[in-house]
């Protein structure tokens, strides 16, 4: 009973109710699945066309892997685009609609409001994951993919959506207008992706000038997409016996662990700052 009380968050149930009543939700879900199917058809047909007569099960596995990678990568970028958008208006739209004060004068703490907003957005993204699972079954038909790989991908999606969603939420507490907070959230996420790549390649370039040729740049550890590919490689090692980066397993694990810690720190900072920002009595108890 105690657990039930702690878990109860009115924002989650009302947000889900409001979201699912809108005609936009089923349309968005349909468009999402449609995009995945289009990519899947293109890449699967390309993979199938490369197969020769008398193909072996190894060839089939290649097609299965192509389908898996295609779905996972496309879905990764859709989530990176959707997660900040779904939270960037969480608090700013309450301000725009003049409902934030009504929430803040209830018994709900700022933390509960922020968590409620984030979880309701993540639940929407979770629904997108679940809707895409049947498409993964096509990869299993061809083989080459293990269930652990799908679980790894889903966990990484969760982590990335948590981080991107937290960043969106943070900006929605900073800016009064949803448009501004959305732009800032996308800009920040874009910088995380691009800066880590640019710095990483710069690092490799300068080291090569000194005659040092490392397998991997340290800045890449902070790139969620590279770490996501690394996590998939680890999960698929049992199936394929190889990874997409020419690095050791140790480096691969380090990449994923450092990135997971980085994303957790980023989301924790964003969430804690958001909670502090919407607290109208911050610094009270004089």
């Amino acid at each position: 009973m105690k657990i039930k009380i702690k878990v109860n968050n009115p924002i989650i149930s009302s947000e889900m109710k409001i979201r699912m009543r809108s005609w936009r939700s089923p349309i968005a879900l349909l468009v999402y699945i449609f995009i995945l199917v289009i990519f899947l058809l293109i890449f699967a047909s390309m993979a199938l066309s490369t197969m020769r007569y008398g193909y072996s099960s190894a060839d089939y596995s290649e097609v299965g892997l192509v389908i898996f990678y295609t779905l996972s990568i496309v879905q990764f970028f859709i989530i990176v685009l959707v997660a900040p958008a779904s939270t960037a208006g969480a608090i700013s739209s309450e301000r725009e609609k003049q409902t934030l004060d009504l929430l803040l004068c209830t018994q709900m703490s700022p933390a509960k409001i922020v968590i409620g907003k984030l979880v309701s957005s993540l639940l929407w993204i979770l629904l997108m994951f679940v809707a895409s699972i049947p498409l993964y079954s096509i990869a299993f038909l061809f083989g080459g993919v293990n269930p652990m790989a799908v679980v790894t991908v889903m966990l990484y999606y969760f982590l990335v959506s948590l981080t991107a969603g937290s960043i969106g939420l943070f900006y929605s507490t900073v800016f009064k207008r949803t448009v501004t907070s959305s732009i800032m959230a996308y800009l920040t996420i874009f910088l995380i992706f691009i800066l880590s790549l640019v710095i990483g390649y710069a690092e490799l370039f300068f080291l090569s000038q000194r005659g040092v040729y490392p397998d991997f740049a340290k800045a890449f550890y902070f790139n969620p997409f590279i770490a996501f590919l690394g996590a998939m490689s680890i999960a698929l090692q049992g199936s394929t016996g190889s990874n997409i980066f020419a690095v050791t397993s140790y480096q691969l694990y380090t990449l994923v662990i450092v990135n997971v810690i980085f994303l957790f720190v980023l989301s924790s900072f964003s969430l804690l700052t958001s909670m502090k920002r919407i607290n109208p009595l911050k610094g009270s108890k004089r």
Binding site: S14, I18, R21, K97, Q98, T99, D101, L102
Partner: peptide
């Protein structure tokens, strides 16, 4: 305390 502000909004779809 029950508070009613001078300006307030409502949620659509509720």
């Amino acid at each position: 305390i029950g508070y009613m502000p001078d300006f307030f909004g409502v949620y659509d779809n509720l």
